[in-house]
Each structure stands twice: as structure tokens, then as C-alpha cells.
């Protein structure tokens, strides 16, 4: 790049000329700014809604699978039906801070509550893990989890997104916190850790346990009160 050129010292009479020049010189920048500003505004108006839709769909399209299971979701899609999904927000008081949870209430076409999907997250091994947790209407069993975002080690902690590891959560009872065991010998209230990725497995299980513990009360209250 060319080095910035030094300006020569000015005589007093030239000062007026220069002052005019500065304002005149900036006209191109001003015109370009207006032009670019309006084109950006146009882009925002046309593409903004589509991007919002994309963000929402990311969560919404996973809900049938989480509530009904893979076969149930497929049957629903084939029959052309849709779940009625209402986004809600719950504030839970915890020591030190308030936790706000985004919960989606899934109703079928007869307005019967099929379950809840909670969007939650927490610290994983490498970075934050975001996931969707599906529970039945009484928050008694887990109907499934889906990992939205993770940055775990590829080939090891990465396996938390696979269907077979996630599938362990289906049908687990929520009365007691789920535990994590190594060696593949998990009982009914435990999850098998991924070999070589115990911390990632524990992080996901902790996130699920915390969300269930926080929301069991409020969701069952809403289920009974709202009916």
C-alpha cells in the first residue's frame, strides 16, 4: 500500500481554499453513505423476515420428532397434520439469578396437550452446548433430546449428536436425576457415557437434569391450571 503522503505547510491564503476543499471532497463519501445505507435498508426489509423465519424453523421443525418420536413424526407428516405449537417463557428463581426458559407447548388438533419442548443449554467440555428437551405433559418422562449447538471434540464428544446416544434419553423417568455410568452398564435411571468423552456425556445429562428440576413445578402447575 502507498504510504500516507505528508501535507506541505500552507500559506494563510491557501487555508480558505483547503477548508472549502475538505467539505467538497467529502461529498463522495456522503453520497456513497446514503446510497449504501438505502440499499442496506432494502436488503433488511426483503431478507429480514426470511432470516427470522429460518431461526424459528430451526427449533419448530424438531418439535414433532421430540414429542412423538421419529415414527410418530413421520406419520404426522404423511397424514399432512401439524402440531399446534405455542412458545412460552418461564422465569425460575435460583440462588443468585433468575433463569429464563423458553418452552414450547405442543397441542394436537384437538387441543390436547401432547408435551413440552424446552430450549436449554449449559457448559460442555469445550464450549457451550444448546439443546432441545422434550417431556410428556406431566413432566414424568423424557421424550427425547436434540442437540442444537455444540463444539465438542470431533470423533469423541461430537457423538452426543448421534441418534443412538441421544436415543438413550427416550422414556427415561424424571423422578430422580439421571446418572452417567461408564462401561456400558447403565440401568433404567442412568445414561451410558461415550467412551473417551465422559465429560461431554455428563454435561448433557446435567443440562437435562437441571432443566427438569427447574421446570417440573411450573409446568405441572400450568398443566393443571390451564386446563
Amino acid at each position: 500500500m502507498k504510504p500516507i503522503q505528508q501535507m506541505e505547510p500552507l500559506s494563510p491564503t491557501a487555508f480558505e481554499r483547503l477548508r472549502n476543499n475538505n467539505i467538497i471532497q467529502a461529498w463522495l463519501v456522503l453520497i456513497l453513505t446514503l446510497f449504501f445505507g438505502s440499499s442496506l435498508a432494502g436488503v433488511q426489509m426483503t431478507l429480514g423476515p426470511k432470516i427470522e423465519e429460518n431461526k424459528l424453523n430451526e427449533t419448530l421443525e424438531k418439535i414433532p420428532e421430540l414429542i412423538l418420536g421419529a415414527e410418530g413424526a413421520q406419520k404426522l407428516a404423511e397424514s399432512g397434520g401439524k402440531l399446534d405449537v405455542t412458545p412460552l417463557s418461564f422465569v425460575v428463581d435460583k440462588p443468585g439469578k433468575k433463569a429464563v426458559y423458553n418452552v414450547y407447548e405442543a397441542l394436537d388438533k384437538d387441543k390436547k396437550r401432547l408435551g413440552w419442548v424446552v430450549k436449554t443449554g449449559g457448559q460442555g467440555y469445550a464450549d457451550r452446548i444448546e439443546l432441545l428437551l422434550g417431556v410428556d405433559p406431566e413432566v414424568k418422562t423424557v421424550s427425547g433430546i436434540f442437540v442444537l449447538e455444540q463444539k465438542e471434540t470431533p470423533g469423541l464428544g461430537n457423538k452426543i449428536v448421534t441418534d443412538e446416544w441421544r436415543g438413550q434419553f427416550k422414556g427415561k423417568n424424571t423422578e430422580k436425576s439421571l446418572g452417567v455410568v461408564k462401561g456400558g452398564k447403565a440401568g433404567a435411571g442412568d445414561i451410558n457415557a461415550i467412551t473417551g468423552a465422559t465429560i461431554s456425556s455428563r454435561s448433557v445429562t446435567d443440562i437435562v437434569n437441571t432443566a427438569v428440576a427447574d421446570l417440573k413445578g411450573p409446568l405441572t402447575a400450568k398443566a393443571e391450571g390451564g386446563k
Binding site: S89, V91, D93, K94, V100, T210, A213, K216, G217, P218
Partner: peptide, 18 residues
């Protein structure tokens, strides 16, 4: 961090509107 309590809360939680 202080150990999080995984037992269900005693206080009732409020539901915030949409």
C-alpha cells in the same frame, strides 16, 4: 461455582407472558 441444587425448588416460579 457454588454447587447447583438439582432438587426441585420450594419457591413457586412465576410464568412470564409471551
Amino acid at each position: 461455582m457454588p454447587k447447583p441444587e438439582v432438587v426441585a425448588q420450594a419457591q413457586p416460579a412465576t410464568e412470564a407472558g409471551k
